[in-house]
Amino acid sequence: MPTPAHRYRSDDEDSGRWAGFPFRDGDIVISTRSKSGTTWMQMICALLVLGTPELPAPLTVLSPWLDWLAEPRDAVFDRLAAQPHRRFIKTHTPLDGVPLDPRVHYVVVARHPLDMAVSLYHQAGNLDRVRLAELTGQPAPAEPPRARQPVEQWLPNWVRQEADPRAELDSLPGVMLHLSDAWARRHEPNVELVHYDDLLADLGGEMRRLADRWGIAVPPERWPDLVEAATFGQMRERADRLAPDTLGVLRDRQVFFRQGGSGQGRSLLDSSAQAHYRERTAALAPPDLLRWLHR
């Protein structure tokens, strides 16, 4: 198995935890940027693999975030080793930081970066920073957080931010690095790209497409219940079981499923800021990826 080209580390994550992970035939690795449809894709995988909306455990238990430092690596490995079904594992690491095994399927979900950024802004306000620091062994925040900029001011600053894409993966350069790497691999037989807007427009069609790609047979009579269980409204109603919060880092689990729509980010930028966004992304990603991403 080739060694990943890069190791990604932050206060919360370390892609080096993938080293030595014993893959099985048919494993599915879900590689996404934050707030780009990670939990949605985990739920879709759970429904397709298990064939029922009644999950046997919380979604985070079934589909752990392997890179996250809040849970011991050996505990995650042991839990995955004990699963008798086909496994589906979460990561926020780009594919060049994950071991690439021909027996494994990799799925990358792409969302319009401006919509992703707005969701990221709201997610930041829903995190319990003290609890997160406790879990990851970081110093607790010394002072109460300062009042944040309104999102209308924060978003243009996010677009303008100059950042090392390999150190700040949720920056605009980081998002484009993640997606550009996946885009370059899109013709590989075990790599699948999914557009967030396609899930919004035709959830059932996308679920059937993924089932076909992954060789998962679903009885026709099961499809309506499975697709309904993957809708945003149904997932919000089941936030206690589906939100990625078994260790208590969210202030409100329902707020995690805030809106889930498309287009809000673009509506928050004036014409000058939108033009700057287009200039920045044109310098960060190939034109064919941008056409697909921004359609």
Rank of each mutant, 00 (worst) to 15 (best):
H187P: 00
A182E: 10
L177Q: 11
Q161S: 15
S171F: 11
E162T: 14
G174V: 12
M176N: 03
N190V: 00
D164Q: 03
H178M: 06
E162D: 15
A182W: 03
D164N: 10
S171L: 10
V194L: 04
N190C: 02
L169C: 05
E192L: 06
R166K: 09
D197F: 05
S180Q: 05
P156V: 14
L177Y: 14
H178I: 04
L169Q: 09
E192Q: 12
P156S: 13
L172C: 12
Y196C: 06
G174I: 09
V191T: 01
L155V: 14
S180T: 13
Q161G: 10
D181A: 04
D198I: 03
D170A: 13
L179Y: 14
L193A: 08
D170C: 11
E162N: 08
E188Q: 06
A167T: 13
V159N: 02
Q161N: 13
E162H: 10
L199N: 09
V191F: 04
S171I: 15
L193R: 03
L193I: 15
H195G: 05
G174S: 10
L155H: 12
W158Q: 15
P189K: 00
V191I: 04
P165N: 04
L169N: 05
G174W: 12
P189I: 01
H187R: 10
E192W: 07
M176H: 05
V191E: 06
M176A: 07
L172P: 12
L155I: 12
L200F: 15
P189G: 01
S180G: 05
L155C: 12
P189C: 00
W158N: 15
A182R: 04
Q161R: 15
D164V: 01
H187V: 01
A184F: 00
E188R: 01
S171M: 09
P165G: 06
A184H: 01
N157M: 13
L155E: 09
E188H: 01
P156T: 11
A182P: 06
L193Y: 07
P189A: 00
E188F: 01
R166F: 13
D170L: 08
L200S: 14
H195A: 11
V175S: 05
L193G: 07
Q161D: 13
G174D: 12
P156A: 12
S180D: 01
Y196M: 07
D181N: 07
E168M: 11
L200N: 15
R185G: 04
D198S: 07
R185K: 07
N190G: 02
S171Y: 12
D164T: 02
Q161A: 15
L179A: 07
L179D: 08
E162L: 08
L177C: 06
H187M: 06
V175D: 06
A184G: 05
L179K: 03
R160N: 13
W158P: 15
A184R: 05
L177K: 13
P165S: 06
H187Y: 05
R166Q: 15
V175E: 03
W183N: 01
S180V: 04
D164E: 08
L179W: 12
L179P: 05
W183D: 02
L179N: 08
D197V: 12
